[in-house]
């Protein structure tokens, strides 16, 4: 839990209001809010309620309940669905990408010279930008390649932020190696701006993972971290089924450290890489990667 997730006492909401938001979020995003997540609703909706000049979160929810579904409802769902992120979050998956997965993919794709990566819940962009920095730092030989680097989030506000590439001191202080800060960022008063040639490597777009996906081309590396945990089992199964349809036979899926395909979709194989775990689609009998 983040410190900012702690609600102010006056922002309490009734069980009925919580239940309304829970149903709205479930319907629009398939995200399941468990009992006891009232603090999450109040903390995430607080800033939006203030911005829209409601005197409290409760008043904001009351307004949502009394009007037909529109832009405010979408903004509310997006605010709740936003996940926490940081540069090189958890370190080990990025070390595995840098030292094993990306070199292997670059080697395998040396003839087609095409590499496709999708960061499917990128929040404010630190995840795809971390990969962009690794590519700039370690893979200068990709000049002239067809790089299809995409990153999406359910929140348009987040994809706007990601595209902008402007971060606070607290954000660059978390997980970002200092040599990368010096090499890839410019300082603009109290913010840090990712250099243009790095922040433009990924294309950012809006994608609600509960709706049809706009990425249809085969993907070499699909990053879907800390998403499945918010879905119920049926939606997890559906998302993993779609992932199987999208991943190349030798492609890799990266989930969050608390997530697994186990007992949800048996057609994935768990592949430990360094100190991280990736997943590959299990080849059918007689097929090789």
């Amino acid at each position: 839990m983040r410190a900012s997730d702690l609600p102010a006492p006056q922002s309490a909401i009734s069980p009925l209001a919580f239940d309304y938001i829970r149903r709205l979020v479930r319907k629009e995003s398939s995200i399941v809010l468990d009992d006891g997540k009232t603090y999450l609703v109040t903390s995430r909706l607080g800033p939006l309620a203030r911005e829209c000049r409601f005197e409290s979160v409760a008043a904001f929810i009351s307004h949502l309940q009394s009007t037909s579904t529109g832009k405010l409802h979408t903004l509310a769902v997006e605010a709740i669905a936003t996940t926490e992120t940081s540069f090189f979050r958890d370190h080990h998956p990025f070390a595995a990408l840098r030292d094993e997965i990306l070199p292997e993919m670059v080697r395998r794709r040396s003839t087609s010279r095409t590499l496709s990566i999708w960061s499917a819940a990128c929040s404010s962009g630190q995840e795809p930008h971390s990969i962009a920095m690794i590519l700039r730092d370690r893979f200068a030989n990709l000049e002239g390649w067809n790089l299809q680097l995409a990153a999406s989030d359910i929140s348009r506000r987040m994809t706007d932020r990601a595209r902008e590439g402007l971060y606070t001191q607290l954000e660059v202080n978390r997980g970002l190696p200092a040599p990368y800060l010096v090499r890839f960022f410019e300082q603009t008063e109290d913010r840090w701006l990712l250099r243009e040639d790095v922040r433009k490597l990924f294309r950012f777009f809006h994608q609600n993972l509960a709706e049809p996906w706009s990425v249809v081309a085969p993907v070499d590396i699909l990053i879907l971290r800390n998403v499945l945990i918010y879905f119920d089992v049926d939606m997890r199964r559906e998302v993993l089924r779609r992932v199987r349809g999208l991943l190349r036979p030798d492609g890799y899926l990266l989930l969050g450290s608390a997530e697994t395909t186990l007992n949800i979709d048996d057609l994935f194989t768990r592949v430990p890489v360094g100190r991280a775990v990736f997943y590959q689609v299990t080849p059918k009998k007689g097929q090789e990667r």
């Binding site: 940081s86 370190h91 001191q169 607290l170 202080n173 978390r174 997980g175 190696p177 200092a178 040599p179 800060l181 010096v182 960022f185 410019e186 300082q187």
Partner: peptide, 28 residues
């Protein structure tokens, strides 16, 4: 300041953390 970070790395520091920070940031 960015220049300070650069100066520290050029002088032999391996990493750099700016105050304020929390425990998690330091451990990262």
């Amino acid at each position: 300041e960015l220049e300070r970070v650069r100066e520290a790395l050029d002088s032999g520091a391996d990493e750099y953390i700016m105050k304020p920070f929390d425990k998690e940031m330091l451990l990262e």
